[in-house]
Amino acid sequence: MALKIIVCAKQVPDTNEVKIDPVKNTLIREGVPSILNHDDANALEEALKIKDQYPDTHITVVTMGPPQAKDLLIECMAMGADEGILLSDRALGGSDTWATSNAIAAAVNKIGDYDLIFAGRQAIDGDTAQVGPQVAEKLGLPQVTYVKEFSINGKEVTVKRALEDGYELIKIQLPCVLTAIKELNTPRYMSIGGIYDAVKADIKVWGAKELELDLNTVGLEASPTNVFRSFTPAPKGKGIMLDKDTVEENAHALLEMLQEKYIIA
């Protein structure tokens, strides 16, 4: 079985590393590293597991972003992907999920020959979980989101789709779009040989022209949603630290205060 898989991935700032300046109440961005988005790493890992089983499998990673997003493709190839394509163009900047999915769908159509598209459920910077389903819609493909277990038999894929209180067992035919969550697998590390090969690899960069995109369908101006305002929430007033000498006294003081506020009778 020689499957052709496209993995959609995004380079994101590691939002775990972001802190708020307590004085100015603004984001401190300095020193925040860019990483491969977590759910996307799970999407790639699942594709790599298929390739482990069927070595003829070909994996193409597609990402959209600024020129430095090339690093992400190198990382994905060092993990074992065969090919990386970067969608990068000023004309794509500021795209919301609708416009982003137009660009990615155009890239998938340009690649043309594929059986399966894997994406992460959502990116940690935006948390929208919209691009995967919207790419599926633009391509007219069926989708399953929140995939936590995956198996494939010929053209038929069986997945478990996570629900809040359980799961759905779903069968779906190729080609289709699946979005991965972290329960799906544990992503592998880059290999030394993989890194060596990946940095020398030729990474394709496609702009709006190569993608033959209508400029009314991508970028900030074309996006149906716009940011109206953005802000950091006001910090809450400092609370009360209980610093009596003993644990007993502190616990007692806490309950007294809760009683004073009628929180407990």
Partner: peptide, 17 residues
């Protein structure tokens, strides 16, 4: 909505559609 891992809030509008 919260964005950027909850570090900022953004208000989004959809004025033309």
């Amino acid at each position: 909505r919260p964005a950027f891992g909850g570090n900022i809030m953004a208000t989004i509008i959809c004025p033309k559609k």
